[in-house]
Design a protein around this nucleic acid. Sequence first.
DNA 1: TAGATTGTTAATCGATTAACAATC
DNA 2: TAGATTGTTAATCGATTAACAATC
Lengths: 219, 219
Amino acid sequence: MKRLKLQNTPTVRRMPTYLHKLLEMQNRGEKFVSTTYLAGYMNLEPIVVKKDIARTGITGIRRIGYRIDELIEHINRYLGWEELITAALIGAGSLGTAILGFNDLREDDLAITSVFDSDPAKIGREVRGYRIFDAAEMEAVLRPQLPDLAILCVPSAAAQETADRLIACGIRCFWNFANVCLRVPDDVIVQREVIAGGFAVLSYKMKYARSGGLAPVEH
Amino acid sequence: MKRLKLQNTPTVRRMPTYLHKLLEMQNRGEKFVSTTYLAGYMNLEPIVVKKDIARTGITGIRRIGYRIDELIEHINRYLGWEELITAALIGAGSLGTAILGFNDLREDDLAITSVFDSDPAKIGREVRGYRIFDAAEMEAVLRPQLPDLAILCVPSAAAQETADRLIACGIRCFWNFANVCLRVPDDVIVQREVIAGGFAVLSYKMKYARSGGLAPVEH
DNA sequence: TAGATTGTTAATCGATTAACAATC
DNA sequence: TAGATTGTTAATCGATTAACAATC
């Protein structure tokens, strides 16, 4: 099976952190930023930031850095965050609620257009200003206006079945927080978040530090 | 500044997913597993899994695979998950509550020994069976029995200040879910989770697929 | 001018992938 | 035996890092 392999994911993953810092600086009224500054903030080597920024295609000003507004625009374009992305969120438990509350993402990048749960105690109520629909009515609600992606916050045991229904509905993109690897057709995109993966890196760092002394850093 | 750079993080990040699947298989009464099988489940090339497993130092059985119980033990040792890791969780909002509810991690790997919040409406109450302490009393509660790490689920604006207090208390390891890069001394370990990073990869995949056709896969 | 920074090319390093022998 | 798998070494690829010219 030949698969399309994605490149530059380390760069892509760093972009939202640059963006967040840049927006904060813009709010403070700052106009320019240098790679040195961003690297200092993120505890990275300046050359890493320089290469990342170069990928967006921006041209900077020698001795000064980059225009903040221009850089924000370039990063948004690089990530495909120019037009609003719409999503349905399935599973309004504590994790789902946490995602509904991320104002970092929800400014101009991601709009959650509907929220579903199968718990009768939740259906019809509001969470963070979102009305919760009955998961049984997912197809009926989504079909007329299909969102770009589905955010899966359902229990792991229900994830595959939920995904199957959404795929049948026409959804071709998933952000999967359930602890299972989904079986999907070739043309369906899945981004799985593995929280335990972060914890594994953390404990590996601890093990490393016990022998080494200093605190290790990724890369 | 010379820093200790961590290697094999891609391997380390995949380990918890192997582990989770292996435990499930063990519960079903299975005894052996092959790299081919795990690769099929995780949608990876078999050679990737073979190399990952080799890093744990286990020896397999040609034509059969690996003993599941032995592999579980080797992965736990590789990650430093042999003895229980203890943690304080700061911030019992929806994200904190979600983490308190991850039974995947909380079996034998991670024990949350205390939970703090500064919201008077929450202090003294229970969330998922954990009693919530007043964040103002963090030092008093933690000092007598310092946990291995702190899980930061506080609002971003409060993260640095909270971290500073915990460092003064003796904490040397953080799992940081707040959207800021913490300033910490050289000997303090930080693992930052950037949820927006996952979303960036997802939207980058979408952009890629729009031109390419097939759904791209990392690596 | 001097110095901080961008821009660009080359070197290095590490992770993935390929190839194939060994073997139960 | 044949075939599926592990074990191991080498090749490739991509990301990080180094070096240095250009310049405001």
